[in-house]
Simulated assay, not measured.
Amino acid sequence: MLLQPKKFKFKKLQKGRFKKKEFAVTSLKFGRFGIKSLEYGYITAAQLESTRIAINRIIKRSGKIWLRIFPNKPITKKPAEVRMGKGKGSVDHWVSSIGAGRIVFEISGIKPTLARSALLYACSKLPIKTCLIGF
Rank of each mutant, 00 (worst) to 15 (best):
P5S: 07
K9S: 11
K9A: 12
K11P: 10
L13G: 00
Q14C: 03
Q14D: 11
K15I: 08
G16N: 06
R17P: 01
F18I: 03
K19R: 12
K19G: 01
K19T: 04
A24T: 13
A24G: 02
K29P: 02
K29D: 04
F30Y: 14
G31F: 03
G34L: 00
E39L: 08
G41E: 03
Y42F: 14
L48F: 04
T51I: 01
T51Q: 01
I53F: 10
A54C: 11
I55C: 05
I55F: 02
S62V: 15
S62E: 14
G63F: 10
K64N: 12
I65D: 01
I69A: 06
F70H: 12
T76H: 04
T76K: 08
A80S: 14
M84T: 13
K86H: 14
K86M: 12
G87H: 02
K88V: 13
K88L: 12
G89N: 07
S90F: 11
V91G: 03
H93L: 12
V95T: 09
I98C: 05
I98W: 00
I107D: 03
I107A: 00
I110M: 06
T113W: 05
R116S: 10
R116N: 08
S117C: 01
S117Q: 13
A118K: 04
A122L: 07
C123V: 03
K125H: 09
L126N: 06
P127C: 09
I128R: 05
I128C: 07
I128P: 06
T130M: 05
C131D: 13
G134M: 04
F135C: 00
